[in-house]
Design a protein around this nucleic acid. Structure first.
Length: 695
DNA sequence: CAGACTTTACTTTTT
DNA sequence: GTAAAGTCTG
């Protein structure tokens, strides 16, 4: 017999021999960054303060690994958003002319999805299982809740949305239902047994119908690793290096997953900042970052401390704010190589619209000074905090994009349309059938339920999307149902490209939408076209639906497609969505008690601390200027106009750190520097020449 | 039983 | 401004 000898695989050279490297890591990075980027194998924890070049370090880390012989496919880069993953791999690819492009990366959820698509049968699921987003999941809870008639009881039973939240929290925090209910939902503690039963039903339902919600992606990936050693080894074998960004925002499940992914090669680097943990509400636990060294033996802890982003005056405020926390954070940020800068300003405005005018005017002034609009961000706690500003910006024709608002797939008409696609993708998906059927005239909750029972009948071996003889349809809806089925069936049979399928559905759905939303049909209609265009980027329906769920499109970003010569837009963003980004100037609006900190957090010290960290994140986004503003009066439907209080986190900050300012209406008078002037209150003709800008 | 209509309560942040 | 629950009518 002939023998072949395989040459041993070439081991990547460990650091040191930097002669062959194309990048000068020592020159491009500071000492601490360099240490992190070129660290050898084994577990490494990088504790990085805000603005210390964390992203830059990770990018150079990627480049370094690839340059020293790790194949990009064997690097797993786990980030918090897809945007972050894309940006990072693209920037690393730029450094090494494309060589980093094949790094495997994405969110935990997306990464797990890929694993599960491959291995789902081992867990009793079909490979083509569908994904439920939070609202789909809520719909399933709703179906089960009605089925059990819990809503008819004497006392108020939690609604489907709340049930979904409760279930998800218990899963993500790995918490007993009873404890969660007692601690956080005492008003529903009496229903513990019912909710537990319902949760069992929910789990069973998903298994029977090949559905996974967001949490299941983590839970089942974990099961895969725990119950199938061979699979775990195969997966982990392909993770020669695991890199995790924003580790302070991982939950218990994700921390476990990281351990499994690194279980073969043991090369895992996590980067994070406990002071920036802002996802407690979805089960994140900043303590993960402290536990990491205990869980991974031989962890080296590296620190990034020098801040390159912000001026010292901005950092003074950040440091002062974070000191108010119950827990202490050991990092004191100091600025490196930046001028002192202007003091951050605290700007009270008489009302929300004045606040909006202030922001709009300042943004335009900065723009005149040569700061591009997309280097200016307006940050706020919740999506609705910017409504007034959006109106004001529209009125002035200032272009903007908003992150963290309504998503395309959350709009009712898009959900209707997607439900049809889901039913095509998975005829067992009762929640989607429920939505689809109830769009038809003559079908309400009861009829829909009966029809669904028949449609999703397990042993039914009939051709899908066809009517059956042994069912008595009412004449009330039979015509509509026939049309629905013939549309679905034609798509099912024809196997046309996805975009055409969607096109067909749009043509079917449009009249229904016109009827259902006739008052704002014109506003919604363009979205349907966008949706078709979106589908055109995918060839596989299941992929399209998964991407829609895991990588939702900002509704506002769709309307304004960036044509080349359009000016870059002003950035409006929730603080959460602004994580990891930096801007020349930051306006923090609605810095109000009850908003930031949110009214929901007031009773709970831990929750309050998280609100404080949120403020800290907002402040540390700013490079040069920071304006925190709030309206002194506000308006709410029931209460009418009322007086507000500024955020407790900002009201007691010494003047040397946060400069109190005053807004003055009217003509620009004296040169008092602490006063910003506004043009006279609007009305149509009142806008001065300064405001008529060449947009 | 569906659907139009009314009343009521609630509305964070994201994968 | 919306979604869920309640009420009335055909």
């Amino acid at each position: 017999m002939r023998r072949f000898t395989l040459e041993p695989e070439q081991e990547p050279p460990e650091g040191g021999a930097d002669d062959n490297l194309t990048l000068d890591y020592e020159d491009e990075l500071n000492e601490q960054q360099h240490a992190a980027a070129t660290a050898g194998g084994g577990p490494v924890l990088v504790a990085a303060g805000a603005g210390t070049g964390k992203t830059r370090t990770l990018i150079y880390r990627l480049a370094y690994l690839v340059e020293t012989g790790t194949r990009p496919q064997e690097i797993a880069l786990l980030t918090f958003t897809r945007r972050a993953a894309r940006e990072m791999t693209a920037r690393a690819a730029d450094l090494l002319d494309g060589r980093c492009r094949d790094v495997r990366g994405g969110t935990f959820h997306a990464f797990c999805l890929k694993l599960l698509r491959r291995h789902a049968p081992k867990l009793g699921f079909d490979r083509s299982f569908s994904i439920l987003d939070a609202s789909d999941a809520g719909d399933v809870w709703g179906v089960l809740r009605t089925r059990k008639n819990y809503h008819k009881g004497e006392k108020r039973f939690p609604n489907k949305r709340t049930l979904q939240k409760i279930g998800s929290k218990a899963t993500n925090r790995d918490l007993a239902l009873e404890k969660l209910l007692n601690d956080e939902y005492p008003q529903f503690a009496a229903f513990t047994d019912e909710i537990r039963k319902l949760r069992g039903d929910y789990r069973q339902y998903k298994e029977q119908h090949d559905l996974m919600d967001f949490d299941d992606l983590l839970v089942h990936a974990l099961r895969l690793c725990e119950e199938h050693d061979d699979v775990r080894e195969r997966i982990a074998g392909r993770c020669r290096h695991v890199l995790v960004d924003e580790y302070q925002d991982t939950n218990v499940l994700q921390a476990e997953l990281v351990k499994h992914f690194a279980s073969v090669h043991g090369n895992v680097m996590v980067v994070g900042d406990d002071a920036q943990s802002i996802y407690r509400f979805r089960g994140a636990d900043f303590r993960n970052i402290f536990r990491f060294p205990d869980e991974h033996e031989g962890t080296r802890v590296l620190k990034l401390e020098q801040n390159y982003r912000s001026t010292q005056t901005i950092l003074n405020l950040a440091n002062h704010v974070i000191e108010q926390a119950n827990r202490s954070y050991d990092k004191e940020l100091f600025s490196e190589g930046k001028p002192e800068g202007d003091r951050p300003a605290l700007v009270p405005a008489p009302d929300a619209n004045t606040e909006s005018r202030f922001v709009a005017q300042m943004a335009l002034e900065l723009r005149e000074q040569g700061v591009p609009l997309n280097r200016i961000a307006v940050l706020f706690r919740s999506g609705y905090n910017s409504y007034d500003l959006e109106t004001e910006l529209n009125r002035r024709g200032i272009p903007f994009v908003k992150y963290g608002g309504m998503k395309l797939n959350e709009a009712a008409h898009i959900k209707d349309l997607t439900a049809h696609l889901k039913v095509l993708d998975n005829p067992q998906d009762a929640a989607s059938w429920n939505r689809v059927l109830q769009l038809l005239h003559g079908i309400g909750p009861k009829t829909a339920r009966d029809l669904i029972n028949w449609l999703t009948d397990e042993d039914a071996s009939r051709e899908p999307y066809t009517l059956s003889d042994d069912w008595s349809y009412s004449s009330r809806y039979i015509e509509a149902l026939k049309e629905l089925f013939s549309t679905l069936h034609s798509i099912y049979e024809a196997d046309t490209p996805l975009a055409e399928q969607v096109e067909t559905l749009v043509r079917y759905y449009e009249p229904i939408m016109e009827d259902k939303y006739h008052e704002d049909f014109p506003k919604r209609q363009p979205d349907l076209e966008h949706f078709v265009a979106l589908a055109d980027n995918f060839s596989d329906r299941t992929d399209f639906l998964a991407s829609l769920a895991l990588d939702p499109i900002e509704l506002s970003a769709l309307g304004a497609e960036p044509s080349e010569d359009d000016e870059a837009p002003l950035i409006l963003s929730t603080i959460h969505s602004a994580k990891g980004l930096e801007f020349h100037t930051v306006f923090l609006i609605q810095a109000l008690e009850g908003v930031l900190p949110s009214g929901y957090s007031l009773g709970d010290a831990d929750a309050l601390d998280e609100e404080l960290r949120l403020l800290y994140v907002a402040i540390t986004r700013a490079e040069e200027n920071l304006f925190a503003s709030y309206p002194m009066t506000s308006y709410r439907r029931r209460r009418g106009e009322y007086m507000t209080d500024p955020s407790r986190f900002l009201s007691d900050v010494p003047d040397e750190i946060l400069e109190p300012c005053r807004l003055v209406e009217g003509d620009p008078p004296n040169d008092n520097e602490s006063e910003e002037t506004l043009p006279p209150a609007s009305g149509d003709g009142a806008i001065g020449g300064d405001d008529e800008l060449p947009f």
